[in-house]
Design a protein around this nucleic acid. Structure first.
Lengths: 345, 345
DNA sequence: CTGAAAGCGCTTACAG
DNA sequence: CTGAAAGCGCTTACAG
């Protein structure tokens, strides 16, 4: 044991166990070719001394930092919270740690901020969330530094850059089918902002579900929106003040669906009695409002887990080398969450 | 310049600048006693080479990791998001990085999880958020490892352990005074869960404001709650169904205030026309609902900034050594946010 | 104001 | 199956 109260090093463990530090290193890194007795003995000393290898020493000598970086923009977003949750848990299981950095998507010194993190910390990988995963400047900085990264739900996939996402088109199709199966034929749709690809994807899913039932969308029932509570409420005001009201509204995210609920309540329209409402995202409020919201759950935490695994499993060179892009761009299964805001008409 | 594409080291900078690595180190660490010309020359080479000192090497040699750890429990909480935001920004300014870890407050291997982070990463400090900042096991693990930490809004302060908080009592008093100044005399109060000290503090502030006006609280207008939307809605149902309704409701957090709003709407009660409602926290929804909520903003991001500063400014030994506890336990100024849910009666 | 030496605590080749 | 040596890229004393 070391003389002073200082924490034990690999040398202390080796001396105590009567082996070389190389053997201790082998045991700790689960390298094969160590006699079982030796391994047990080392492990026993490790436990007794509460020894944990120091990350900075491992990193300096071994070239791996055991750090995964998470870059995000909006700190309050529920999305980022879920990503972080999934990522920290998987990191813990794999012996890694998560370093977070909040970047403004339009900061003038974005490049320097990314460089600072990448060059100083040398994370073994980076996870990028929207909208940073679509920022050319950030992507370029990361590419130049050779840092492997995984994009979570990027606008569009990039050849050779790993990504994880869900299928917005398919999910929108499914939730539209739910409304159709409940007998709704006059279904309004509130779009997202045009600069987000999810907006188009969800709208497309909505349309294709209608088409599959030989239905044509009523142009007057299609309203613009911007994924915010206020725009949802506004759009709903238009829709619900019409002579011929829709019997259901598909707001393409939950924030807008919450706005629809508020508008319906103000107009004295019972949900789901007189109007069915569905959202998209399964935000925390979706389960809390009354009536609770039927929506689509994005597997956000799972996406983050998968992202960590892709980063840890091997260097990006390996990933990009596989010409099979299917392995590089993963699509995770979403989930329809049926609650109280939908009813047969 | 290094031969291969490898990133430059301090040796490359020293060679290029025609000085010793020690001098480069001095410049980079802003140590005094370097000739201005020398400093400029070094800095020029640093820029040209895009050199950034490697954290693992600095850490191994210097004993500082330039890492601050953030321990939290509930990942979705808005509170944690703000803490993280404030902390990452201040860390960036100070040349530090933030490592996050999500821990279950009642995990059986809590001790090991804390140890893993502390012993492997050796962060220069830890920030603890509720409820982890009140967990004896976590606190003990950190103390034994000698890791400096700052508690954010702990239930109660601990001698010698730095903390940052706001004054719940005073804030509750202020927002109650607001209602009183608007002419309200029948003010209901919805309490928080008894196991959180904020519940008692806010209630106490409410009471003392009443007393200061020679008013006595009506026991029937005091309702229990648990800081959730559902309990707020339920409590409001009781309160608003009474023969003699209160003219104002003080829900001791925003989630419950949102529940009050929902209940009022269902009962056809106009807010703020027939009922004023105030909350506490300034959650994201508070500004989005209609009517928007009058509430108290906790300076959460600022608390995190201050926490980082306390950690970086000096070793905990120094902090604890100051017998003056006032410097160790900081109280930050809150803010009354007056919106549309309150009106004179 | 500046530098040569030692060392932080590990892992990576390389031997045996 | 195991070990002795070198080295990762910095900072800390210590000199001058």
């Amino acid at each position: 044991m070391s003389a002073r109260g200082a924490s034990p090093t690999i040398v202390d463990v080796a001396r105590e166990a009567g082996v070389s530090i190389k053997t201790v290193s082998r045991v700790l890194n689960h390298e094969p070719g160590v006699h079982e007795n030796t391994r047990d003995q080392v492990l026993k000393v490790v436990e007794a001394l509460r020894y944990r290898p120091k990350q900075s020493a491992r990193s300096l000598a071994g070239g791996r930092s055991f750090l995964i970086g998470l870059l995000y923009y909006d700190p309050s977003a529920n999305f980022v919270g879920s990503v972080q949750q999934g990522a920290t848990l998987r990191c813990r299981e794999l012996g890694y740690h998560l370093v977070v950095e909040s970047l403004h998507n339009d900061a003038p010194d974005l490049r320097q901020q990314v460089d600072r993190m990448v060059l100083a910390l040398r994370p073994d990988g980076m996870i990028l969330t929207p909208p940073l995963c679509d920022n050319p400047e950030v992507l370029a900085a990361l590419r130049e530094s050779g840092t492997p990264c995984v994009l979570i739900s990027p606008e569009r996939d990039i050849r050779g850059v790993p990504s994880v996402r869900m299928d917005d088109v398919h999910a929108a199709e499914e939730i539209t089918n739910l409304l159709l199966s409940l007998g709704h034929r006059h279904i309004a749709f509130i779009k997202g902002p045009p600069d987000q690809s999810a907006s188009a994807a969800r709208y497309q899913g909505f349309l294709s579900a209608l088409h599959a039932h030989d239905l044509h969308p009523d142009p007057e029932l299609i309203q613009p929106g911007a994924f915010t509570f206020a725009t949802g409420r506004e759009a709903a005001h238009h829709l619900l003040s019409r002579r011929q009201r829709p019997t259901a509204v598909f707001a393409s995210n939950d924030d807008m669906a919450l706005g629809v609920l508020a508008a319906a309540q103000r107009l004295g329209l019972a949900v789901p009695g007189e109007l069915s409402v569905v959202g998209f995202d399964d935000s925390p409020m979706a389960a809390l409002v009354w009536p609770s919201l039927t929506t689509v759950r994005q597997p956000v935490a799972e996406m983050a887990r998968v992202a960590v695994e892709m980063l840890v499993s091997g260097p990006q060179a390996d990933m990009a080398a596989r010409l099979d892009d299917a392995d590089l761009h993963k699509v995770l299964r979403h989930e329809l969450v049926v609650r109280d805001s939908t009813r047969a008409r």
